[in-house]
């Protein structure tokens, strides 16, 4: 249900994982690569992860959402080179009711950004930058 992948994410397949018969709502959040950041033009992104720990943290998030809202959660995060408008992360929440689905989904993406060890490198026309929280640090070529 939760994994890091090198491949483009199959959103429909991920939704199917949480679309059990008792769930009246399936909510999908897709994070995609945008063409600008910090007033710079972005060519593409390169994601890196501490894969085993990242997957462990993602499973923790899904378990916590299940415990709090009774929802089913599937999360996939892609790493490697990702082009503009491609999905970097997809979170699918299946829930008997929509209110819990919205709340849980927001919790999942917010917590993922805080605790799942994944980093992006923004590759711009004038160089590449590691994004570490608020900081952008010039990457070594």
């Amino acid at each position: 249900m939760c994994r890091i992948t090198q491949e483009p994410i199959d959103v429909r397949a991920l939704e199917a994982k949480v679309a059990g018969a008792s769930n009246g709502a399936v909510l999908t959040f897709v994070g995609q690569v945008r063409n600008h950041s910090r007033q710079r033009e972005v060519a593409y992104l390169e994601y890196n992860a501490y894969i085993p720990m990242a997957e462990k943290q993602m499973r923790k998030i899904a378990a916590e959402a299940k415990a709090r809202w009774g929802v089913d959660v599937a999360i996939e995060h892609r790493i490697g080179r990702i082009e503009l408008q491609e999905a970097s992360v997809v979170i699918c929440v299946g829930s008997p009711h929509r209110a819990e689905a919205f709340e849980a989904c927001r919790y999942c993406i917010d917590t993922l950004k805080e605790t799942v060890p994944i980093w992006k490198k923004e590759v711009c026309p004038d160089g590449a930058f590691w994004i570490e929280g608020e900081d952008a640090i010039q990457a070594q070529p």
Binding site: A49, M53, K113, E114, P117, W119, K120, G133, E134, D135
Partner: peptide, 10 residues
Amino acid sequence: VAFIPPMSGG
């Protein structure tokens, strides 16, 4: 031991 800088997943 892993040193985890501020993250930027998502």
